[in-house]
Write a protein that binds this DNA or RNA. Structure first.
Lengths: 127, 127
DNA sequence: GTCGTTGCAAACGGTTTGCACCGTC
DNA sequence: GACGGTGCAAACCGTTTGCAACGAC
């Protein structure tokens, strides 16, 4: 794993950023330092990193997939105005939520869940 | 609203079915009684019905959107084997979950959420 | 030389859209 | 005759894939 410069750059970029870029946003970010980098390579590596559990793919609401360099369990909030995705890490009632969800996981014999809240983010609210 | 036979048929079909068909699945279902019906019309009407709140669009995980004729609040389970979506209506701990989620909604000033569980459905488990 | 990886461009697949046409008011 | 809606086909756009080339071992 991680033999190539491109792969390392993609992973590093994704981890250095708190937002959840799409593949082409990532491509645009890296174009500055890696002008040769192709979109296909970005997709290939994101797929590979996702399957190796080093990156989270948020193929949730909205048209485009978004990627998350933080693979720890956390929930997301999507702004319905700008369509960006934010982490809900320091969530109030998070412990409570996790407890209920664990119970439900057991009851439904599912093994994963994804919770996405929808609203308007602060920066969109202020304009 | 609902002036056209096609629109009524699409809505009726979606409501008469407990699964959550994609646009082309719906198109295939209706082709039998409405051989002329075009995919474009299905998309156009689903979009219209969604924006009028008569249908829920589950643009969640997976590539294709799935549509839900039941606009009441409920959660979903996606089978990772066949990729179909099921309702989790009679969920154990549902009341508990709703309470926590309402608290979180208030705290985050979001106004909606979507919870999707992932697992393997019974019919896939049995083969 | 083999293998993994790349850039590029073409293909793919779900969705949207432009257009001419039709039925209803 | 204006308008909303349709079927059809082409366009669109995010993503995947085939291919020749390249670099590390």
């Amino acid at each position: 794993m991680n033999h190539s410069a491109q792969r390392q750059a993609i992973l590093a970029q994704l981890r250095s950023v708190t937002c959840h870029p799409t593949a082409d946003e990532l491509h645009a970010m890296l174009r500055g330092t890696m002008p040769q980098l192709s979109l296909g390579t970005v997709y290939r590596n994101l797929d590979l990193l996702t399957r190796n559990g080093m990156v989270l793919a948020l193929h949730t609401a909205g048209a485009q997939k978004r990627f998350d360099g933080n693979t720890e369990l956390h929930h997301h909030m999507r702004c319905e105005s700008c369509d960006r995705v934010f982490d809900l890490h320091s969530l109030e009632h998070a412990g409570e939520l996790e407890m209920v969800l664990q119970k439900i996981l057991r009851a439904t014999r599912c093994h994963a869940y994804h919770l996405e809240m929808t609203g308007v983010c602060d920066s969109c609210k202020n304009q």
